[in-house]
Write a protein that binds this DNA or RNA. Structure first.
Lengths: 158, 158
DNA sequence: CAATGGTTTCAGTCCTTACTGAAAGTTCCG
DNA sequence: CGGAACTTTCAGTAAGGACTGAAACCATTG
């Protein structure tokens, strides 16, 4: 039916909004949304621009960001000028790894704070210690979480 | 020494930047940073405004947000007009719970997408299924993670 | 090597949202 | 109850970043 298209567009917009909610950019969410539902699973910049009614410029910047972030990848087809993009296999695990970098940013700040209070009474240091310990804990647990996900994936797939 | 103060201010600013990086607001990061290192551990709005060189207005809005998000709490002292704020015990676990709400937002979008492709071939649905499964998995694992953190905390403390 | 199809770059515009400052509101005290 | 200390509200401003559109760039084909 014809209004599947408009509903899919709606889904894409929703992804844009959810992404802004999570601190990302709207267009990045839209591109990912589109690449999640399109058929075939790869799209050229021009196709994305058309489908999302966005300028070629913003598609270019946002695809670059997503490629750098490991969320999507470029595909080249011999005898074609266009370069295509598709969801990168394993992108979800990758998104967690990216997030993990932020965890260690936080932990770093906590540690720098603790250095400043190196000679302060223990009671005053406690808040920062808990802060640091929490992010250290999260960082520590993340790899196991990703492994569990990989195992689950492997089980279900084959 | 006197330049501890300027270094602490530096820490506070760093927290502001890290927070923007994570999708929060700069001032929220500054307030949390300040509340992590200040002595005593509670501060009035006016004290925060002074220490952060911010307007009383922005302190008011940002403290409200942080209270609603479970990051800080209000303290009232009898016979005092000022209301004080301090880091809420357990704020780190709370921050994960807040984040978990976003996970379920994402899963919700994935599910709505899948409904749209209900009658599409399995190959086309696969990307969305992985998307949904991933966030479902994360949501599922989070409580256990928080319990592990709580246990660790309890062990070390007493 | 010119022409065409496609992508990137970049300067400028627009939109959003954080922040300010002043006025209004609240709470405690004499 | 009037006044002082403090906080919240709100309209307006400022700052930052996303997006556009046009021009430059690159690659493939005749």
């Amino acid at each position: 039916m014809i209004d599947t298209d408009v509903q899919l567009a709606h889904f894409v917009e929703e992804m844009g909004l959810v992404f802004t909610e999570m601190g990302g950019s709207r267009m990045a969410g839209r591109v990912l949304g589109r690449l999640l539902i399109c058929d075939p699973p790869h799209q050229s910049s021009a196709e994305l621009a058309e489908a999302l009614m966005a300028s070629s410029g913003s598609i270019s910047t946002v695809t670059r960001q997503l490629v750098q972030g490991g969320m999507i990848e470029r595909i080249a087809v011999p005898g074609e000028r266009a370069t295509y993009f598709r969801i990168r296999p394993g992108m979800w695990a990758e998104s967690v790894r990216v997030r993990m970098a932020m965890l260690s940013l936080m932990r770093g700040s906590a540690e720098r704070g603790l250095e400043l209070l190196a000679s302060a009474p223990a009671a005053r240091r406690r808040r920062l210690e808990e802060f640091r310990d929490f992010y250290a804990f999260m960082e520590e647990q993340t790899p196991a979480l990703l492994e569990a996900w990989a195992r689950k994936r492997a089980m279900e797939e084959r």
